[in-house]
Design a protein around this nucleic acid. Sequence first.
DNA 1: CAAGCTTAGTATATATGTTAGGTATATACA
DNA 2: TGTATATACCTAACATATATACTAAGCTTG
Lengths: 375, 375
Amino acid sequence: MRPAKRREPPSRQRSAKGRAKHSGKHVTIRDVARVANASVSTVSAAINNTDYVSAAMRLRIERAVRRLGYRPNDLARGLRLQRTHTLGVVVPDLSNSFYTEILQGMKDYASAAHYTLLIGDSRDRWAEEQVYLDNFHRRRVDGVIRIPAADDQCRNIRELLGEIPVVYADRFPHTRDAAGGHVGVDNTVAAFDATRYLMSLGHRRIGIVAGPETAPTAADRLEGYRRAVRGGHVPVDPALVRRGDNRMVSGHREAIELLTLPDRPTAIFCTNNMMTLGAFQAIQELKVVCPDEVSLLGFDDFYWAPLLRPQITMVRQPAREIGLAAARLLIEQIEGRNTVGGDQTLSTQLIVRQSCAPPATRPEPSIVRSGKVGA
Amino acid sequence: MRPAKRREPPSRQRSAKGRAKHSGKHVTIRDVARVANASVSTVSAAINNTDYVSAAMRLRIERAVRRLGYRPNDLARGLRLQRTHTLGVVVPDLSNSFYTEILQGMKDYASAAHYTLLIGDSRDRWAEEQVYLDNFHRRRVDGVIRIPAADDQCRNIRELLGEIPVVYADRFPHTRDAAGGHVGVDNTVAAFDATRYLMSLGHRRIGIVAGPETAPTAADRLEGYRRAVRGGHVPVDPALVRRGDNRMVSGHREAIELLTLPDRPTAIFCTNNMMTLGAFQAIQELKVVCPDEVSLLGFDDFYWAPLLRPQITMVRQPAREIGLAAARLLIEQIEGRNTVGGDQTLSTQLIVRQSCAPPATRPEPSIVRSGKVGA
DNA sequence: CAAGCTTAGTATATATGTTAGGTATATACA
DNA sequence: TGTATATACCTAACATATATACTAAGCTTG
C-alpha cells in the first residue's frame, strides 16, 4: 500500500529495514553435502529416502545433518515440488471455543495426513478474511477451508485463490456455490426443532435473537424458527424477531429489548453461543428469573456451559466432527481421490438442561410432538 | 520416521499421492510480463516500487496483474530475499481465552509491522511444541514467540531453531536463559499479593491448587503463596498444597481433595483459569457455599467471568499487552534495532468480585495490609 | 563539438535451496 | 555380451529480486 505516485529517486539499495540483523546464514543441503563429503543430490536422496544410498554414506550424511542442525528449507522445497502440504483456515473468532473446537478436529485430521494448518482469525469481517485468503494464495497453500465472515461479499473465490481448492465449514458462503463442498449442519432443521421444543413446553411468544442478515446460516436458523412458530398456528410477531451480530454485546442488547417489551416473550432463542451469553447476562441483570419467568435456549454449546446457573439448554453442533470432515474433504480433493464427495450434513443435538420450562402464565395446554431430543 | 533399513527398490517416480490433481499452474511474474509486454524485472520493479517504471508501463502491468489474478509467490520471494515476514507462535492451548487474548495482541502488533503469524497449539506438551518449532525452522520464519509447554525439556533452543531469534511470553523456559527476552508478569509477587489478600480477610488455612512441578511459573506462584502464608506467621501445611496440570479436570479433582479433607481449608487459591473453573465446579457439586463456607481465588481472568455466580475474584494478567510487547520485542530484534531491550515485567491486577469473604469460623481477627487491589 | 555525465527506462544474467530425471560406473548374473 | 542392481553425481527447473548492462536522450564542459 505504498503511494503509487512515488516519483522520487527510487532507492536501489535495500532500506536498512529490509535486511535482517542476524547475518548467520542458514545451513543448506550444500553444507551438509560438503561435510558429509557427498553430492547434494545424494544428500537429498538420503533425506527423502527416494533413491539408493549406501549404508555408510547414509550414516555420514545423518551425522552431518545432526551436527550442523540442518533443516530442509520448506520455501525451496515448496517451490520445487509445487506443493506445500499446508492448508489455510480462516475462522471468524479464535476466542470462541466453538471454532477452536472445529480447529482441533481439522488439525487432528490434517496432521495425520501430514499437512500443517495456517490459521487466520477474520474477526468475522470479510475485509480481514480477504487479507488472509490473499496471504494463503501467496503462500501457495494446497487448499483452503473457509468459515466465511458474516458480511462475506465474495463474488468469485477463484479471483482470490486461483486454482486452489476450497471447502466450507460450518457456514455457507454468501453465494451458495460452495464449489468444493461444505460440511455443516442443517440450520433450518436445528432451529425448527429447537423452537418446536419451546412450543412443546407451552411457549407461544418466543423471542429470537438471530444473526446478521447477511449471514446465510442466520437466515436459515431464522427460517427454522419461523416455520416452527407458524407450524404451531401462531403468527410470527415481528417485534419478537431481533438481529444481533453474533457477539456477546449484541445478545445482551437485544435480550434487554425483548425483556422490556410491554408484552414480553416467555422464551428467548439465541442463534449462537456468544449472543446466548449476552442474553444470559441480560436476564441476570434485569433480575428476571430463568427459567421461571423466561426460558432461554442457546446455540453452539461450550465446554464450561455446565458451570452457569441455570445451566443453559442448547443446540449442540458436532464441532470437532465438522472440522475433521472438512479437512478430510479438502485433502481428498487435493490428492485427487474424491471418495467422500460433495456436501456433508451432520446432525445437531438438543442438550436439554435447566434454562427452559413451561411459561408461568400458561396458555391453552396443547401438546406438540417434540423434536429429536438428546441427552 | 520411515524405516531407515529400507532396502526395497526405491521408487523413483513420485507416488500417486505426491502429485496434486489440480494441474492448472499458478500464474507467474513471467505471465504478467508477457501479457503486459514488459520484462520480468520491470514487472518486479513496478510491483515492489523499487525502480523507475513509466506511468504507461505501470498501468499496463497493473492491468495485467488484475486480469490474470497474479499473486507473487511468497515461497520464491522468501527464498530470494532470505526473509519471510512471518513469526511463529506456539501457545499451550488455543481453547483457553487467556492465550487467544495474548494472540490478539501479537497479531495486532505484527500485522501493523507487516508480519504474519504462524500459530501452533502445543496442547501444553513439549513433544508437540517441538514439532511446531521444527516446522517454524523449516519454514524459515523470521522469529519465534514461545509460550513453552509445561513439561518443556528444551536444552538448547539453538539446536532446534538455529539462528532464528526467540522471545518468550507469559511463561519462562525450562532453563531460565531466555536469551532473546521475556515478557510476562512477576508471578511470585502476584501470588503473594493474592494470598495476602485472602489472609487479610482472616483466612489461615488456605489451600492451593498449583500447576505442574516442571513449570517455572507454577513454581513462582507457589513460592509467592508460601511466602505470604509464612509472612502471616502460619506454617505451610503440605496437605493444603496440591498439584494440577493447568487443566479443568485437575482443578476439579484437587479441589475435591481439599474440600473433603478432615480439616478443610477456608479458602482455595487456583493458579490458572482452567483449574479455577474445575474448582468452581467441584464447589458447586459438593454443595459447599461460596464464599460463605469456602473462598475461591483464581488466576487469569476470562471475559465471561461475570456470568458465574458467585463471580470469581481473580488475579488478572494483561494478556493483550503481553502479546503486544512480545511481538514488539521480537520484531525489534529481527530488524536490528534493539530499542526496547531485555525482559519486560508487566503488572497484574487483583479483580475483587464475590468469591472471597472472611471465613465462617473466624480466628483471631488480625488485620493484614492488603496488597495492590484493583477494581 | 566531441566526450562525458545524468536521467529515464528496459533487458539480461545470476543467485536463492531443493528435487526429479538423466547420466555414469561398477558389480553380479544369465 | 547383455541385463539388472546398486551407488553416486550433474543439471535443469521452480518463481523471484537485483546487480549489471544497455539504449536513448538531454545536458555540461574543456
